[in-house]
Amino acid sequence: MKVYTKTGDRGKTSLFSGERVLKCHDRVETYGEIDELNSFIGMLLTFLPKEEKQIVSEIQNIQRVLFQIGSWLAVTPDSGYAAQLSPLDPAFIENLEQSIDQMDQALPELHSFILPGGGQAAATAHVARTICRRAERHLIRLVQNEKPLGKKTEERMAITQIYLNRLSDYFFILARYCNMLMDIADIEYLPQKKPADTA
């Protein structure tokens, strides 16, 4: 199948529910951010130690859920087309919470903010965390702008919003966990008292 279809050359795209919209439409921006997040997660996977099979499969499941969220976002709410898509299972949120708790238990307690960074895996997890936050903010704006929504759609969007919120927490903990696996200490944030000596 050809990658380029030329159908979007004039700046418009078709939503899954059939509407023709500009590519800068809020809905397209939002699922674009989910796609961006998914791609960064793909990069993160390449930096994880091979033996961390459980984390790898966990992250691949997250990628699948993000695909599902992407298709939800490509449908105009309450348009009837949404009936074709399976709703996001709240169990996905519980899975994230369990993983967060498990990793957190293995980590030293945190007493201050940390600087995003460390090893490649951790640094990429931090990037994923911030893209996830951006997607979450965009989703909230989208929902606000499209109100009032039907009850079912409201519920579904709420679950997606919670999922994204939890997912960025997951990436924060994962970043710390990756640094721990690689024996890299997190650097705590200390306020800079005076400009650094550049000499």
Binding site: M1, T5, S17, G18, R20
Partner: peptide, 16 residues
């Protein structure tokens, strides 16, 4: 379609 029938919906299956 965008120009002549702007309110319409479009569903696509490409054999490309």
């Amino acid at each position: 379609i965008d120009e002549r029938f702007p309110e319409s919906k479009v569903f696509i299956e490409s054999y490309a």
